[in-house]
Design a protein around this nucleic acid. Structure first.
Lengths: 223, 223
DNA sequence: CGGTAGATTTCGTGA
DNA sequence: TCACGAAGTCTACCG
């Protein structure tokens, strides 16, 4: 990894055109060809960047990073006015990030404890297939009614519509014509709740800590 | 901006839990409180991070970054095993990024030259209001028919459905019952074109350079 | 290689 | 402050 701190000017042409006027910034040139331009503020996001694979050329005080993008080309041109620091660091092998608490985890937890969705649901199968894709969970309720469950971290209008598309397909099977829909999410957009009401879909807010038995249940039910 | 290259281990708890096992990485501590953990590959995205406002504490070989997140707390804990480099850089004031070619620019250009969408369109109004949000452009064509235009950089299925939701609302007004829809975009997903056909929505591919008169018109019309 | 869906999405803007 | 929508979204996964 090469780290350069320099007064520089950056031009990007590609999916859009962008200019970064002269100022002092951090340039990161990674071993895999990634190039990042960071300012001393505005966290997370680089001001400009190029993801691999790239071709990097250095001609005196200009660094040009190029990349094939379909028939066109993405191009990042960095003009250096004053180099304050330029250091190379060997990093050795990387270690991967381990995550816990993403949508996949929600699905696993709810598959283990579908009753957390209410009405004594029993899991019939995860990833129940339809011709337009799988429904996250298919369950049956306390009176043996079918219940299709879509799981999201954030409940949006799109999620409601996705579930409705599934329901429409599932109901084509006469045996499942009475299936009802449940959208489970950690958070809900108000507009999603309104649309769900209109579409007769039930929204259930779920809490990871509760699901794991780390806290008392306190489910909020909409509709 | 402080740049640290170190063998370290990182733990994040907040919206999810994540662990980054011991390895050599770049730590960026920005003046505004941003903290980024980058590996020597995997461009663009930090492995872990925290955006401002943050509180940073340093106790010997442990850096703790904390942030209020609603009622809970986001926490990034960086345990340093070996510091290979630790440098401070004054960056001075920043200069802002200037972009050109985003959706807003497309809308402005098309508002100025709606005829680029075909059929001698005349602009009636930008951001035409409906009860579920504004349509980008409302125009009338050569025979005074109403035309609702949705503008995107990338034409997707979602864009088609969004336009159709607008059309449905607009058509509730008898005077506008015959309104037709046009989806304008720089690029189109093939499936979006197919859906648009089925929904009787016209797709028009637009070219920034042509819109600006920098190049000869060569519009591609689908449907 | 294109399409789909998730993301600690981030980031801006407008109410 | 909240909520919505764009983004050079990026990224992983699947066909």
């Amino acid at each position: 990894m090469r780290l350069i701190v320099a007064r520089c000017e950056v031009h990007y042409t590609g999916r859009l055109n962008a200019v970064l006027p002269e100022s002092t910034r951090l340039l990161i040139l990674k071993a895999d060809g990634s190039v990042l331009v960071h300012a001393d503020a505005g966290g997370y996001k680089p001001l400009n960047w190029m993801t691999p694979p790239t071709a990097i050329e250095e001609n005196g005080d200009v660094i040009v990073v190029r990349k094939r993008a379909g028939k066109a080309e993405d191009r990042l041109e960095i003009r250096l006015f004053e180099v304050l620091s330029d250091a190379m660091h060997e990093m050795g092998e990387a270690a991967a990030l381990e995550k816990d608490g993403v949508e996949r985890d929600l699905q696993e937890l709810l598959a283990e404890r579908p009753e957390a969705l209410g009405a004594d649901l029993r899991l019939v199968r995860r990833e129940w297939p339809t011709d337009i894709g799988p429904v996250d969970l298919m369950c049956r309720d306390d009176v043996d009614g079918w219940v299709a469950v879509e799981i999201k971290r954030l409940g949006t209008i799109d999620a409601v519509e996705q579930l409705c598309r599934y329901l429409e397909r599932i109901r084509r099977d006469p045996a499942l014509a009475a299936v009802r829909g449940v959208l489970a999410a950690q958070r809900f957009k108000p507009q999603a709740v309104v649309l769900a009401e209109a579409r007769d879909v039930q929204c259930v807010e779920i809490d990871l800590a509760v699901l794991r038995g780390e806290r008392e249940p306190d489910l909020t039910l909409f509709v």
